Amino acid sequence: PQYGQYVTKARRTEAKAALARVQGAQERYFTVNNKYSSNPADLKVLACAAQTTGSGDTCDQGSHVITIAVTGGGDATGYTLTATPKLADALC
């Protein structure tokens, strides 16, 4: 039981760090484009093929899937990030 709790805590910490990376990328994108993006390719932070992003952040194959939902219609004046545990990670 203690090991499971440790793994769950570590994965949640990893998810929070990933959300913070995406949030930073969204703010950088907004600074240039005056709107937020729901396309991870625009943010250059979620594509893990090269293991690095345009901003120099590392992108690890995490235990969660990050989804982006923009709000505000065509202006995209806000966004919501969601970290969902992958199905194989039942401990989260």
Rank of each mutant, 00 (worst) to 15 (best):
L46S: 08
T67Q: 06
Q51T: 15
Y36Q: 00
D60S: 14
D57I: 03
A49D: 05
P85A: 15
T53P: 04
C48L: 10
K35Q: 09
T80L: 13
S37P: 09
S38L: 02
V32Y: 02
V32M: 05
Y79E: 01
N33V: 08
P85H: 10
T71P: 00
A47W: 03
Y79D: 00
V65F: 03
A83F: 08
T84A: 14
Y79W: 09
S55P: 00
A50W: 04
D42I: 09
S37N: 06
K35G: 00
V65W: 00
D75F: 11
V70F: 06
G56W: 11
N33W: 02
T84Q: 13
G78M: 04
D60F: 11
T67K: 07
P85L: 14
I66T: 05
V65R: 06
N39Y: 07
F30Q: 00
G62S: 10
C59H: 07
T58C: 14
G62Y: 13
A49W: 10
G74S: 05
C48P: 03
A83T: 14
G74C: 01
D60P: 11
S63T: 05
T71A: 09
Q51E: 03
T71C: 01
V65T: 10
A76I: 00
H64M: 05
T52L: 03
G78E: 15
T53Q: 06
T84Y: 06
T53E: 10
I68E: 05
H64W: 11
A50K: 07
L81P: 03
T58D: 08
N34G: 09
L43A: 07
A47T: 08
V65E: 04
K44H: 12
L81N: 05
T80D: 11
L81C: 06
A83P: 11
A76C: 02
A49E: 10
T77I: 13
S37W: 01
G56I: 15
A50V: 04
I66D: 03
T52W: 04
Q61F: 10
A50E: 11
G62W: 06
T84H: 09
S55C: 12
Y79L: 04
T67M: 00
T53A: 12
V70C: 03
S63F: 13
F30Y: 01
P40I: 06
H64S: 08
L81R: 07
T82E: 14
G78T: 11
T58M: 13
I66A: 08
H64V: 15
G54A: 10
S63C: 02
